[in-house]
């Protein structure tokens, strides 16, 4: 018998997973392009076509840039995981990990680490384009930077957990994009990303208020749009406490569902 040596800690293995996840993402050219180029392309196309004023001193492009940054949170966490986890279930990644002494929590730490890195890169690119071409300006006060930070972190954690939970729905990796992207796309239309939220039909506003993207977009607008634009919002204010509240509720729901439903293996 060999003497028992200490197992590596879950946290250090989580960091190990983060590094390998990022490496794999950048090696896979197609998914790297999909991850980074698509949001930028959408921003450029929509921002250029609908470059009209929606309020004094505020263009739709600015409004849309804020919405795309909020979408970036959903893309990098929810959409990414809900598609890649079923693929990893199919190609044997998860089963190999399940058979190793790596704890499950390290896998999730790895995912969260990768998502934060991807998000920072993506949001930097989107902000750069927004500032260069669409009249976006950097957050003007420490308070706005702080708002930007907590919405990003809370939003990423929330949507990561929801992505893990949603990953149990697609039966195969091949079918995953078809079950995931429409959900995100519809929410973008109804949550104030592609259209100005206050101009949507009332029932649509109410419906999308149950989901996180509406609140993420509104919160991010509070960071990037002029302060007096708050009066143009449906509630007449940015409703930051409500943003935090909704994200926390969805984080709790996501955590519960993720723990209850996550499966290493495909249903047999």
């Amino acid at each position: 018998m060999t003497t028992a040596q200490a197992l590596p800690s879950a946290l250090s293995l989580g960091w190990r997973r983060t590094r390998i996840e990022v490496k794999q993402l950048f090696r896979d050219k197609e998914s790297a392009v999909f991850t980074f180029a698509l949001p930028m392309l959408l921003l450029v196309v929509f921002g250029s076509v609908f470059n009209t004023d929606i309020a004094p001193g505020v263009t739709f492009s600015q409004y849309f840039a804020a919405g795309m940054i909020a979408s970036g949170i959903v893309y990098t966490s929810f959409q990414n995981l809900a598609i890649t986890i079923p693929q990893e279930r199919d190609d044997g990644t998860l089963k190999r990990l399940q058979g190793s002494p790596m704890p499950k929590v390290s896998y999730f730490i790895g995912k969260i680490g990768m998502i934060f890195i991807v998000y920072v890169i993506q949001v930097t690119l989107l902000m750069a384009i927004g500032i260069a071409f669409f009249g976006l300006s950097l957050p003007e006060s420490a308070f706005k930077w702080f708002t930007f930070a907590w919405i990003s972190v809370l939003g990423l954690i929330c949507c990561t957990l929801l992505g893990i939970a949603y990953s149990s729905i697609p039966k195969t990796g091949r079918g995953a994009p078809a079950l995931v992207t429409p959900v995100v796309l519809v929410l973008q239309f109804t949550s104030g990303v592609f259209f100005v939220f206050s101009q949507l039909p009332h029932w649509m506003q109410v419906g999308s208020s149950f989901f996180p993207l509406k609140w993420l977009a509104q919160g991010i607008r509070s960071v990037f749009l002029p302060e007096d634009f708050a009066s143009q919002e449906v509630a007449g204010s940015w409703q930051l406490p409500a943003v935090a509240g909704m994200l926390l509720i969805w984080t709790a729901i996501g955590a519960l569902l993720a723990i209850k439903t996550f499966r290493w293996q495909a249903r047999t």
């Binding site: 390998i20 490496k23 794999q24 090696r27 190609d91 044997g92 990644t93 089963k95 190999r96």
Partner: peptide
């Protein structure tokens, strides 16, 4: 069978 780790 496995098809993972293809990019490493």
């Amino acid at each position: 069978t496995s098809r993972d780790l293809t990019d490493l």
